[in-house]
Design a protein around this nucleic acid. Structure first.
Lengths: 194, 194
DNA sequence: AATCATTTTAAACAATTGTTTAAAATGAGA
DNA sequence: TCTCATTTTAAACAATTGTTTAAAATGATT
């Protein structure tokens, strides 16, 4: 607790407050209180609220998309292996940061988000992944299966806190479900290709 | 444009601004400008920003969950018909209001959201829907398939504006995909039950 | 010890923002 | 036309909020 620098304290507190409240509702005073640090230190170390948010969001977006992009473009590994890899990698990232999907996706959806450009669209566009999908299902738009896979994976994380709050699942139940899906989703996707 | 009352002008403008910017970032002045109406009229007609937001969010949440709940609890119709109904109904609601899913889900996820209580959790919990799913797949948690279905349906809407912004799909392409999924998703879910 | 850059603090500032006020405009009913 | 409730307007208010400032504390180097 003391071995951690002021900069890091602020960054961790800001991550928490921003992802809980969103940029607009988050207050610099919330962050300073959460970090246990003087208000002015945030501006001293990070210049401005916007800058602090940008640093955090850039990391989150790259943490999310950076993990899978290398797998997507790999021509050598099979479609089945790709799907397995991607789901496993995403699980590693997201299970350590359950709010990450909602935090990132709600930011990207905003009118003038400055972070969409961090998504390697061109690489995805002509990735081996999309070609391999089209080879399996030539008459269906490959995006369908990408949306299936990512929807099956991410949607539960977007809904977890809601499901817990209304009592539709217990924390242990949800943890189990989220973990089980890592092996289920690749199987399900393969079924869709038959 | 003139046949519409001031109250309605404000409501429509507020819906747009809130769903584009979120509660925290939305400004009363943004709403008054969007509505083409004097700033003070918002408080005159709707008392406060919070109250206005609550009115809108309550409508959105009920518009989303109200449509499907009656189908969920119906004991008579088959699981296949239920799935078809639900997806078709959701499509009617959401295709007329593309931002609705992100607007509602991001609100429900917030720490102290006052709108989670609008979700009829008990009715869902002991709905015929869940029982019918368990009858098909006794050893898999039924939530898995609910999450599959809703994930496949909602996730594309959560990603649409992002996909368009990065150029991974054209508007017409996305419209087509979203429409096609209404018939695809029930077929896919049935495949998962085999 | 002395020096000096870095870090921290308390206070204040300037701008923004939700809300209120009091007067003016509008419009329906007598 | 007069009356009176409703609606609209411009202005101001009070609170909040991101940021800055100037002094104090800290800590490493000589």
């Amino acid at each position: 607790m003391d071995n951690i620098s002021t900069q890091e304290k602020i960054l961790l507190a800001a991550e928490k407050v921003f992802s809980e409240k969103g940029f607009g509702t988050a207050r610099m005073r919330d962050i300073s209180a959460e970090a246990g640090v003087n208000l002015a230190l945030i501006n001293y170390h990070y210049k401005s609220k916007e800058n602090l948010y940008a640093i955090i969001m850039r990391n989150k977006v790259q943490g999310l998309f950076g993990t899978i992009i290398s797998h997507l473009i790999d021509e050598k590994i099979t479609l089945e292996d790709k799907i397995n890899f991607i789901i496993e990698e995403l699980y590693k990232v997201v299970s350590a940061d359950l709010n990450l999907p909602m935090f990132v996706f709600s930011e990207l959806q905003k009118q003038d988000s400055k972070f969409v450009e961090l998504i390697p669209a061109e690489k995805i566009k002509d990735s081996a992944f999309l070609k391999q999908i089209s080879a399996r299902k030539p008459d269906v738009h490959p995006l369908h299966y990408v949306l299936d896979m990512l929807g099956m994976f991410f949607f539960p994380y977007l809904m977890t806190s809601t499901l817990l709050k209304v009592g539709l699942a217990s924390p242990e139940e949800m943890n189990n479900i989220l973990k089980e899906r890592v092996k289920f989703i690749p199987q399900w996707i393969e079924q869709l290709f038959l």
